[in-house]
């Protein structure tokens, strides 16, 4: 896979037009609800992955699209959450090999504070820097965590990962687990939606737009960045907590830069300037991966071409294409009417 494209146009674009995000979200919600009607289990399996990685990419976009910093190590918090859940599930395993319902929910819940704590400790150092230094330091810490998990065999089983994570009977059903994931992700997205429209959400936009002015308005820039970093880590951890029970295993690769790249790709493809952009990116990326790899081994080439096309022809992501088309339609309808307020 190619190195992630650096932040360019998308960083300057505001997470605007949530009208569009809302419309896309209202369209996607029933679509996701109806996925199990498709024949076979495979589409449900793919849709589960889309949702989990979509949530992970959304959490990344709190840092990228809203705060204007790029993290190359965001998978560390996704992986921390996945491992927290996996290790606790394994610890609470019953004789049957599965974990009880209480243990299952507890294992999932623990991921959020664990990832948040990890993000707090690492973020404390990272938010001292911005731009490329922020990106590089996040990468360094991400790889550090990866190597710890990779090498600490007695605790994490190292390269073998943790296998045989059996959720309780109800959640072993592909369809049930899918709806469970859908509910968790939908709730997380609702919370993020509220945050994006809160004063805190606007504080992040101010940091992205002009951190110097933000400081001279009275914002403690570092503290605000740290709080957002922890929030993003917590949501990434929540996404990670779904991964183990879904895949029945976790491996160190979940913390690696390759996984971090996924969040970046998804945000770029869907549109980092749009609230729902990363989910759209996940649909495209994960969906294509699931089906293209059935026909060809040239997946890196395929996704490389797609990313190239997006960066060249739709630098604001696929949603920006839709957004521009709708705007042109609106302008045609209203004549060259006056500009409206964006309502981010």
């Amino acid at each position: 896979m190619a190195m992630p494209a650096p932040a360019k146009e998308t960083t300057a674009k505001p997470p605007g037009q949530p009208d569009l995000s809302l419309c896309v979200g209202l369209f996607l919600a029933p679509a996701f609800f109806l996925v199990p009607l498709l024949p076979g289990e495979y589409p449900v399996y793919v849709a589960t992955e889309i949702l989990i990685l979509g949530l992970f990419a959304m959490s990344f976009n709190l840092i990228y699209g809203y705060m204007g910093q790029i993290s190359f190590g965001h998978a560390a918090y996704f992986g921390l959450g996945a491992y927290a859940t996996a290790l606790l599930m394994q610890y609470l395993q019953q004789e049957t090999g599965a974990v009880g319902y209480f243990g299952f929910f507890l294992s999932m819940l623990i991921a959020v504070p664990v990832s948040a704590l990890g993000a707090l400790i690492i973020g404390f150092f990272i938010v001292r820097l911005t731009g490329i230094y922020f990106a590089m330091l996040s990468l360094a810490f991400g790889e550090l965590l990866f190597y710890i998990v990779f090498s600490w065999y007695s605790f994490t089983k190292g390269d073998d990962g943790i296998q045989g994570l059996l959720p309780p009977a109800f959640f072993r059903d592909v369809y049930n687990f899918y709806y469970f994931t859908l509910i968790v992700v939908a709730c997380a997205l609702l919370v993020m939606w509220r945050i994006s429209r809160s004063p805190f959400g606007y504080t992040l936009r101010m940091l992205r737009e002009n951190a110097q002015r933000a400081a001279f308005v009275g914002i403690n820039v570092r503290l605000t960045m740290l709080v957002n970093f922890v929030l993003a880590g917590a949501f990434a951890g929540l996404a990670g907590s779904l991964w183990g029970p879904f895949q029945r295993s976790v491996s160190p690769a979940l913390l690696g830069w390759h996984e971090s790249g996924l969040a970046i790709f998804m945000s770029l493809i869907g549109g980092a300037g749009y609230f729902i952009g990363p989910v759209v990116g996940s649909i495209v990326y994960t969906g294509l991966y699931a089906y293209v790899t059935r026909f060809t081994d040239y997946w890196p080439l395929t996704i490389g071409v797609i990313i190239l096309a997006v960066v060249l022809f739709a630098p604001g992501g696929l949603l920006s294409l839709l957004d521009n088309a709708l705007r042109r339609l609106r302008e045609k309808r209203d004549g060259d009417g006056e500009r409206r307020e964006r309502k981010p």
């Binding site: 945050i195 429209r197 809160s198 959400g201 009275g218 914002i219 403690n220 605000t224």
Partner: peptide, 13 residues
Amino acid sequence: VRRGHVFSLFGDA
């Protein structure tokens, strides 16, 4: 910011 809403996560901006 002046009114101390910087960390208000759920208010309506």
